[in-house]
C-alpha cells in the first residue's frame, strides 16, 4: 500500500490524504490507536526526560526509596517477630519448678500423678542433669556453666495442658492448682511473655501506620518538588502548548507519567533495599531460630506486600505530580 502511494501523482496523493484524514478523525479504532500512541509516547518520552538528568532523577528516586524502606522494613520486622513467636506459641506449656532440695525421684512421682490429672495431656520430668545439659548445649552459656562445681538447677516437670484448655480462666485455674502443690517452688506458663510481646507488637504495628502516613506525605512532597522544578524548566513549553490549544489534561499528562516513573522506580528500589536487608539478616536469624529449636525461617515481602509497596509508591508519585501541576495550571490561568 505505501509503495503504491508513492507511485501516484501529487494531485491524486492529495485526494487520498483527504480521505484518510477524514477516516482518521472519525474512525473510533484509529482514534483509539492515536490515543494509545500518545500514552505510549508520553510514557517513553517522560522516561527519556528522567534519564536526561540522571543525577537529579536518581536522587529523587533514592530519597523516595529510603522513605519507603523505613516503614516497609519496620513492618517486615514486626511481621517476622510475630511469626517467630507464633511458632513458639505452639509449644504452649507449663513448667513446674520443684523446690531445689527435692530429688529427681520426687519429681518423677509428681509427673506420674500429674499425668492422671483430667486437664493435663502430658507431664514429663526433666531431671536436674538433663536440664543442665540442655542449657549447656543450647543457650551459649556452656563455659559459664562448666565453671560451676555443683548443679544449681531444680528438677522440672514439663506439663502440656490438654488442647481443650483454651480459655485463660481455665488455664489460670490449673496454674493455681499446680502452685498449691507442696512440691512446687514456682510455676511458669511459657506463653505469658508471648502475650506481653504481642501487645508490644501491636503498639509497634500502630506506629508503622503512623510512620507510613508521615513518610508517604514525604514522598508526596519529594515528587511534588521535583515536578515543580521540572515545571519551571518547561515553562515556555507549557505556555506555547496552551496557545496551541492544549487542554490542561494534555499538559498534565507527561508530568503524571514522570510522577509514575519516580514512584515506580522509588518503590522498586525500596523493595530491593528491603530484600537486601533481609538477606543480610537471614544468617543470624537462622542461628537464633536454631537456639530456640524453632523451625522458623525469615519471611520476605510477599506478593501482596510487594504490590502494595509499589502500588502505593506509584500512586503517591502520580498524586504528587497531579497536585503540583494542577496548582501550577491554576496559577498560569490567573495571570
Amino acid at each position: 500500500m505505501p509503495i503504491a502511494r508513492h507511485k501516484q501523482t501529487p494531485r491524486k496523493r492529495r485526494d487520498t490524504t483527504a480521505v484518510r484524514v477524514k477516516r482518521t478523525r472519525n474512525g473510533p479504532a484509529n482514534w483509539l490507536r492515536a490515543y494509545a500512541d500518545l500514552h505510549v509516547e508520553t510514557l517513553k518520552s517522560s522516561f527519556a526526560r528522567l534519564r536526561r538528568t540522571p543525577v537529579a532523577s536518581s536522587m529523587t528516586v533514592l530519597v523516595i526509596a529510603i522513605a519507603l524502606t523505613i516503614p516497609a522494613s519496620f513492618h517486615l520486622f514486626i511481621k517476622n517477630v510475630r511469626q517467630a513467636s507464633s511458632t513458639l506459641e505452639a509449644t504452649n506449656q507449663v513448667s513446674l519448678f520443684l523446690k531445689p532440695e527435692l530429688s529427681n525421684e520426687t519429681g518423677g512421682k509428681l509427673a506420674e500423678t500429674l499425668k492422671k490429672h483430667p486437664q493435663v495431656a502430658a507431664a514429663e520430668l526433666i531431671t536436674k542433669e538433663a536440664g543442665l545439659q540442655e542449657l549447656k548445649s543450647y543457650s551459649g552459656f556452656g563455659d559459664a556453666l562448666r565453671a560451676l562445681d555443683f548443679n544449681p538447677l531444680p528438677a522440672v516437670v514439663s506439663i502440656k495442658p490438654k488442647d481443650s484448655l483454651t480459655r485463660p480462666e481455665e488455664v489460670e485455674k490449673l496454674l493455681a492448682e499446680l502452685k498449691a502443690l507442696p512440691e512446687t517452688d514456682f510455676v511458669q506458663l511459657d506463653t505469658e511473655w508471648m502475650h506481653k510481646l504481642n501487645s508490644l507488637l501491636t503498639i509497634a504495628q500502630r506506629s508503622v501506620i503512623v510512620f507510613s502516613v508521615l513518610l508517604s506525605l514525604g514522598v508526596l512532597f519529594i515528587v511534588g518538588n521535583t515536578i515543580r522544578l521540572e515545571l519551571q524548566n518547561r515553562h515556555e513549553e507549557i505556555a506555547v502548548a496552551k496557545l496551541m490549544g492544549a487542554t490542561d489534561r494534555f499538559i498534565r499528562r507527561p508530568f503524571l507519567y514522570a510522577g509514575f516513573w519516580y514512584g515506580f522506580l522509588g518503590g522498586t528500589l525500596a523493595w530491593l533495599i528491603v530484600s537486601a536487608f533481609l538477606l543480610f539478616l537471614r544468617g543470624p536469624s537462622r542461628r537464633l531460630a536454631e537456639l530456640y529449636g524453632s523451625p522458623y525461617t525469615l519471611s520476605f515481602l510477599g506478593l501482596t506486600e510487594t504490590e502494595l509497596l509499589i502500588g502505593a509508591s506509584v500512586s503517591l508519585g502520580i498524586i504528587g505530580a497531579w497536585i503540583v501541576v494542577s496548582y501550577h495550571l491554576r496559577e498560569l490561568d490567573a495571570t
Partner: peptide
C-alpha cells in the same frame, strides 16, 4: 499532538 493525531498522520 495537541489535537490528538496519530503518529503516521
Amino acid at each position: 499532538q495537541i489535537a490528538g493525531y496519530g503518529q503516521q498522520e
